[in-house]
């Protein structure tokens, strides 16, 4: 129990890792907490983009009459996906916090369909990363939501408690 390996968390390992693997990150760090409740899963990634998804379920509904999802889970998905797009572009994990996030709801999500978010980091500065994203329910050319945001890169000690 006193060896350092015993106390290292998945987060510690990602902080120390040389690269950034969005699939592993999702499997380990999106499985619990709020991301776990929403049911976020890895969907794909490239050099500067990442896709996450979650499945429709009753608990996430915002309008019980129509079965349309609440927008809260869509914010959460876009927040996570845009955040991870920064590390994907940088090729490493870097502590950051959301400065602002704007979301335009282009139409209601179709009930019972999974939601997919594709997020891209289009610029990284010394202390800021600029992101954009699209959420859709199967056809990216007919999106459910558009997002634009900025992350502040912060000191690691303040990042977790």
């Amino acid at each position: 129990m006193d060896s350092p390996e015993d106390t290292s968390t998945p987060l510690d390992r990602f902080v120390q890792a040389a690269g950034f693997n969005p699939r592993d990150w999702t499997a380990h760090l999106n499985a619990h907490g709020h991301s776990g409740f929403i049911g976020m899963r890895y969907h794909g990634h490239g050099t500067d983009w990442i896709e996450l998804a979650f499945d429709w379920r009753e608990e996430l509904v915002g309008d019980p009459e129509t079965g349309v999802l609440a927008s809260g889970p869509i914010i959460s998905l876009l927040d996570n996906a845009t955040s991870m797009s920064v590390w994907t572009r940088m090729g490493r994990f870097c502590p950051q916090v959301t400065l602002d996030l704007r979301i335009d709801y282009t139409r209601a999500a179709a009930p019972r369909k999974p939601i997919i978010a594709r997020a891209e980091c289009y610029q990284v500065r010394r202390s800021m990363a600029f992101v954009r994203g699209i959420a859709h329910d199967g056809d990216i050319t007919d999106p459910v939501a558009h997002a634009a945001g900025i992350f502040m890169l912060v000191d690691g000690q303040e990042w977790v408690k």
Partner: peptide, 12 residues
């Protein structure tokens, strides 16, 4: 992130 509320939950 550990010890903090999720930005999406705050948005909700």
């Amino acid at each position: 992130r550990p010890g903090f509320m999720h930005g999406g939950a705050i948005g909700g």
